[in-house]
Every structure is written in structure tokens, then in C-alpha cells.
């Protein structure tokens, strides 16, 4: 028993050490068409030239309720069924950055920390004393500070960029899990139904067993 306690104590220390990394910033994503639409616009303007989102098609954006005119503007000559491929061919991007920029369709699900990580990362740029850009959350990143947060000192401007970052992660969260809303809605019905059924089954069980002896 003593040994066990020692191990538990050791594990506790280990987990503390583990948790002492950079704390992720908190963010609540929006699921409404406005927020996700603004996020899509920001992604199309600031990310889409290098990053693809190959599991999202222009049609998905229209079906979600985004402005058809805007989507038509983004897709140009491409079909509504075309996926959102990066404007820069992958090989060029690989040459420019040493490695092809990752596809963003699943980004908020593909990183430890999810939306909070992506949000923190976007806002995590800073300038080193030598004037070089750095990132708190992903120091090896090759991506430039697209939001321009590292040069910002003013509070109001910072808040604005936080709002933009939130729009972007809201859109990315939607594209990683487009059926989330539907899933939650169905989930409430299913669980409500199961609660009723389980209560009934409990009453049946009690009644059956009350007949014993």
C-alpha cells in the first residue's frame, strides 16, 4: 500500500510537470451563419492562397447558408462541387516554406487542444528583441503572422484581431465537424427518449421481481 502511495505521488508530480507548458487561451466558437461566414471570408482572404481545405466544397458553404454571391466570387470559374484547393500549387508552397502547408479541413480536430490551440496559435505571434517574428505555441512554425498580431500594441486593435481569430476558428471548427449541430440536436432527443425508456424498464423490472415469493 505504501509503495502504491509513493507511485501515486510520483505520478502526481509527473502530471504537474506535464501541465506546466504554455497555457492555451480560452475561446468559445460561434456556430451561427454570420460568425462562420465571416470566418470563411477571413480564411479565403488570408489562408486560402497557401492552405487547402479539400474536404469542403463550395456547395457546402452555400448549403450552410452563406451568401451565394460571395461564394460565387470565391470560386470564380470553378464548379460548385469543386473542393477548396489552395491557390498556390502544393509543390510551389513546399518549395517556399520547406514543407507543404497542411490542409485545414480537419485542423481543429487534428491538434492537441483543438480550437483553443488554433486560436492561441493565431494570436501567439510576437517580435523577438532582434525584431524577428516568433510564436509562443509553435516556435518552429514557417507560417508568417497573417493576422499581424505581433506588431499590435493597442488594446482596441488587439480585441479586433481576437474577434477575427475567433471567426476563423469558428469556421474551421464547422468545417472539421459540419454535422456537430445536428448531432447535438439528435443527441438531446435520443437521451430524453432513453431516459423515459429506462424509467419504464426499471418499473417493469421492479414489478416483475415483486412477484417473486
Amino acid at each position: 500500500m505504501k509503495r502504491l502511495l509513493t507511485i501515486l505521488a510520483l505520478c502526481g508530480i509527473a502530471s504537474l510537470l506535464h501541465a506546466s507548458e504554455m497555457e492555451l487561451e480560452k475561446v468559445t466558437v460561434g456556430t451561427d451563419v454570420q460568425t462562420v461566414g465571416r470566418g470563411a471570408e477571413a480564411v479565403m482572404n488570408d489562408c486560402h492562397s497557401c492552405h487547402s481545405m479539400k474536404y469542403i466544397r463550395y456547395r457546402d458553404l452555400v448549403n450552410f447558408g452563406m451568401d451565394r454571391q460571395k461564394v460565387d466570387g470565391w470560386r470564380g470559374d470553378l464548379s460548385l462541387d469543386a473542393p477548396l484547393l489552395a491557390q498556390m500549387p502544393e509543390s510551389d508552397a513546399a518549395q517556399a516554406y520547406g514543407k507543404a502547408p497542411p490542409d485545414l479541413s480537419l485542423m481543429t480536430k487534428a491538434r492537441e487542444g483543438g480550437v483553443r490551440y488554433v486560436y492561441s496559435y493565431l494570436l501567439g505571434y510576437y517580435l523577438t528583441p532582434e525584431g524577428m517574428p516568433g510564436n509562443h505555441y509553435f516556435p518552429e512554425t514557417k507560417m508568417p503572422d497573417v493576422l499581424g498580431i505581433s506588431g499590435v500594441t493597442e488594446g482596441a486593435q488587439r480585441t479586433e484581431l481576437q474577434g477575427k481569430a475567433r471567426d476563423i476558428v469558428s469556421f474551421l471548427a464547422w468545417s472539421a465537424d459540419p454535422h456537430e449541430q445536428e448531432r447535438h440536436r439528435l443527441g438531446y432527443y435520443v437521451i430524453a427518449y432513453l431516459l423515459v425508456l429506462t424509467v419504464l424498464l426499471y418499473l417493469v423490472k421492479n414489478q416483475v421481481w415483486s412477484g417473486l415469493k
Binding site: 425508456l197 419504464l200 414489478q207
Partner: peptide, 16 residues
């Protein structure tokens, strides 16, 4: 009452 309870449960379960 028991028959009713069992039948109601069977209907609810069957619907599920």
C-alpha cells in the same frame, strides 16, 4: 396495471 406497463414499455422500446 402490470400488463399495461409491460405493453407500454414494449411499444416505447419497439418504437426506439
Amino acid at each position: 396495471r402490470r400488463d399495461f406497463l409491460i405493453r407500454a414499455t414494449a411499444v416505447v422500446g419497439g418504437a426506439g
